[in-house]
Design a protein around this nucleic acid. Sequence first.
DNA 1: TGAATAGTGTCTCTTAGACAGTATCAC
DNA 2: GTGATACTGTCTAAGAGACACTATTCA
Lengths: 229, 229
Amino acid sequence: MVFQSRFPVFAVTADIVALTLRQGRLCVLLIRRSSSVFTGRWALPGGFVHVDESLEEAAYRELGEEAGLGADAVRLEQLRAYGDPGRDPRPERVVSIAWLALGADLPDPTPGTDADLAEWVPVGDALDRHLAFDHTQILRDGLERARAKLEYTTIATAFCEPTFTLPDLRRVYEAVWDTQLDPRNFQRKILGADGFVEETGEVIRGRGNPAKVYRAGPARTLHPPILRR
Amino acid sequence: MVFQSRFPVFAVTADIVALTLRQGRLCVLLIRRSSSVFTGRWALPGGFVHVDESLEEAAYRELGEEAGLGADAVRLEQLRAYGDPGRDPRPERVVSIAWLALGADLPDPTPGTDADLAEWVPVGDALDRHLAFDHTQILRDGLERARAKLEYTTIATAFCEPTFTLPDLRRVYEAVWDTQLDPRNFQRKILGADGFVEETGEVIRGRGNPAKVYRAGPARTLHPPILRR
DNA sequence: TGAATAGTGTCTCTTAGACAGTATCAC
DNA sequence: GTGATACTGTCTAAGAGACACTATTCA
């Protein structure tokens, strides 16, 4: 099939930096490419945007096709566009719209049509894997965006199940920022931020003292922010 | 001329939210369209990305072609991509990469090939003009990005000449945030932020007490940030 | 009963905000 | 001299960080 246009022709892809916590570690979803260029190399999941779908729909579709992740499992946010000539070795000019997808302890992925393997990789390891295209740079940008968003927004709850405890939420901050936080100061800040979390009234019993259960509140931004050191 | 591709075909445009201060007011560059769709409507400057130039080069080129602005006059930063089907009435699918361009008191623009008028418009007026395409939304996003960046980065200096006084810099914050700031507290914060500004050792004499002259320092981010109320 | 986990309060220091008067210069 | 502009410091309040012990539960 051949497509035509009156204007300079571009292909547009959606590439996704999907982040989740597994065993307390921040992990990114990588696929091993089994088709077209960069065969056998690790890459971010993604693919071509169809002409009749929105950029966001394409990102959701690729998450489903390449990793078996449902749209309800993640929160999507646009990162930026990458479009340098030569960033894709194919003769067509390819512009990638990169997305950040955040989810709670996501299931092991199911490889799709363009990948023979898909797995969650701790972000430190992923940065060492010499990803295909400019995906290492996209991953770096996505990580920095996620780290910054934890300061100014309530997006940390996207890494949690619908209900969670404050130690759960603290572990999100600790994993994404790769640091340790004081539990007392952390609780004071979270509970002092109007609308960040709401008590459900329940407690969860684990190995020690029962923990209060919360759900995400209506606030989307944090005033004042919770800053990294 | 007809272009062809193996992949779904997109056209890619660069649209620019160019902001500057004129007489102490935050203004955005608008053009009145004289070609193809939305003829006669006000819009952000922009145009199609060529197949052999980077997205950023296209933004600089369009600023030159449509408004006569040189690349050295502005600081460019990518905003995000806009690509909903139907955002452009032409049959081709058009994805726009939007950019923020910040500059010091920029000259009156020179209309280019696709515009019969180009002018700096106070942002409040621009938001009321029912811009072409989804440009009102892009403008809103650009303004919010600029306002947020003033908190966490040293980008305010992009609105200043190479050398400037602290009252100049304060007027940037006041115009972009549409608020009044206490000069004493402002100076304390700016001078307390390592690497934000450097003294040149000169003073500028105006109508009153001479003001110390500064230039932008090496810092690009602010720790801690200078927060809006 | 021992180990693991979560809950809670105070003190200190830093930062943020409110606030007024003096010095310089152009006209 | 008058008006305009820029410079400077203190006090108070709020927020951030450091810090230790108790309560509950499971094994």
